[in-house]
Simulated scan of single mutants.
Amino acid sequence: MIGISGAAFAVALQGGSTGVVTSDEDASREEVLEFWTPERVKRAKPAEMPVYPVECTGWGFLVRPHCW
């Protein structure tokens, strides 16, 4: 995580794009609960996440369940 964060920070300092989209929200707990009704939760779809290939070599396989 630190390496990824550091790389993203370095790109941001150079004025480049990290490909990360963020949004700050100031909604209260009540507003969030009002927005996320049971019907809306049922219709919600997960966001697409990037997938990066990872090799199962060396000691790294110990922390990568898909390598077991």
Rank of each mutant, 00 (worst) to 15 (best):
R64H: 14
F35L: 04
V11G: 01
C67R: 05
A7H: 12
R29S: 12
W68P: 07
Y52G: 05
I2F: 11
S17C: 13
P53A: 03
V11Q: 06
E48G: 09
K42C: 03
G19Q: 02
V54G: 01
R43P: 00
V11F: 08
W59M: 04
W36L: 11
M49V: 14
V41F: 01
A47N: 14
F61P: 00
V54S: 01
L62C: 01
V32R: 12
S5E: 15
C56R: 10
W68Q: 10
A7L: 12
S28F: 05
R40P: 00
L13N: 11
F9M: 11
R29M: 12
I2T: 14
I2N: 14
F35T: 02
P65A: 04
R43C: 03
F9R: 12
Y52A: 15
P46M: 06
V54Y: 01
A47H: 13
C56K: 10
G19N: 03
E55H: 11
A44Q: 12
T37L: 00
Y52I: 15
V11L: 13
A47G: 13
G60D: 04
E25R: 12
E39F: 01
S17Y: 07
R43Y: 01
E30Y: 02
V63W: 08
I4N: 08
M1G: 08
G19P: 01
L33I: 11
F35V: 02
G58A: 06
W68A: 08
V51W: 08
I4E: 07
R40S: 06
F9S: 09
A10P: 01
V32C: 03
G19D: 01
W36M: 05
